[in-house]
Design a protein around this nucleic acid. Structure first.
Lengths: 210, 210
DNA sequence: GATTCAAGTGAGTAATCAGTCACACACAGA
DNA sequence: TCTGTGTGTGACTGATTACTCACTTGAATC
């Protein structure tokens, strides 16, 4: 059994190594946990399944992350980092091409959500349990602070515009969660239409106000 | 063993205690479940505690609601009805006083969330588990359809305005969940400021566009 | 080869959960 | 007073959970 699942992995940085480092395993665990947490939420996600998807034993999971809560916080942090990376990259593109940063960032977010729903779902679960799990709440606050900071600095938008932009992102989250894009009804088509002008700043407002 | 446990239950509280109807008990269960679901979320909310808060046994809970899922759906439905009631009342006020319906409805929502956080938290949990619990997802879709319909009919706003308005509501939800109003930082003060202009329609847009 | 330490696991455990079942009780109508 | 029906419960159960512990394996260093 042990021989069947033996993996020979080459670690490029630390030379040849049959065993992984604890840090590598932690990374794999975070990746695996994001998919399980996204699917089932915090409380319903079994640590056994997370360990199984990461290819390690449950016992070792608890050596790497002493509690399930710490693993969840790490997963939320990771999803935040992914968004942050997506935004900064979009801001770079906007700067290079002379486009509106907020609009490009909004497009990038819509794209991220569309092709990587797990990030969004982890965020949604984290929001929901924030009032009852202080560590998660604090992580979410840091996440919003960071995201707001990068959006603000790179776009030079007014607070009001940033607020509208952020609100649009929240709407994208919810509509994606309930699969509004699959529904052919006016309300769904209106609320789930975030292609193009998903920065939630109407063109006329942009023209008149800036 | 059953014979030995005969208990004489003689009107334990002040006044004669009559039996309730099943329908009354169901109402009490929904009310109790909303507080527990709001606090702990769907999966972490024990049916024993819901029954205890409703003042009945767990066994009877399962006679009234055959599964926990059905009870949760009923709770989500109830929270939707409360919002619906709040919106229609606000629309009546707006009509009577000649004010902008969307703005009054937005104020009503902010007020509802502030003084009854459980409704909001149930909605948040329902959103998060929507992808994995079809019955909840369908309920949420119906909820948004209903809310969108009343907002649309009573306000005569354009789809774009309705979308902005709804997005603002989603932002209120998230900021309330993470307690952004307790934070004295620019991002939190900007995003959690939903007093007054929480309809998310900037005045200049209103003047120019309608 | 011996030593050492990190990586890794099988086999638990105590607690908790949704759901069940046999049974008791209250009340209205005959 | 009896009886049928709906209200209500104590005492389970089988499954699942987060977390633990004694133990093994891999490989770098001397």
């Amino acid at each position: 059994m042990a021989t069947a699942s033996r993996k020979i992995r080459k670690a490029p940085s630390a030379g040849d190594r049959a065993l992984s480092t604890a840090e590598e395993r932690r990374e794999e665990l975070i990746t695996a946990s994001i998919s399980v947490f996204a699917e089932k939420g915090y409380h319903a996600a079994p640590t056994t399944e997370i360990a199984r998807r990461a290819g390690i034993s449950q016992a070792y999971l608890f050596r790497l992350f002493p509690t399930k809560e710490e693993l969840f916080v790490a997963a939320v942090d990771r999803s935040c980092e992914v968004m942050y990376g997506s935004f900064t990259e979009a801001a770079n593109v906007a700067e290079r091409e002379g486009r509106d940063p907020l609009e490009v960032m909004g497009d990038a977010y819509a794209e991220l959500v569309a092709e990587n729903r797990n990030m969004l779902l982890v965020q949604l679960h984290a929001q929901a349990i924030s009032p009852s799990v202080p560590a998660v709440r604090d992580t979410m606050r840091r996440c919003f602070a960071t995201l707001f900071a990068v959006a603000s600095e790179r776009s030079k938008a007014t607070p009001e515009e940033l607020k509208l932009w952020m609100a649009g992102g929240m709407l994208i989250n919810v509509m994606t969660a309930i699969g509004a894009n699959e529904i052919e009804e006016p309300w769904a088509e209106t609320l789930a239409d975030f292609e193009g002008d998903c920065d939630f700043t109407p063109p006329d407002l942009l023209d008149n106000n800036r």
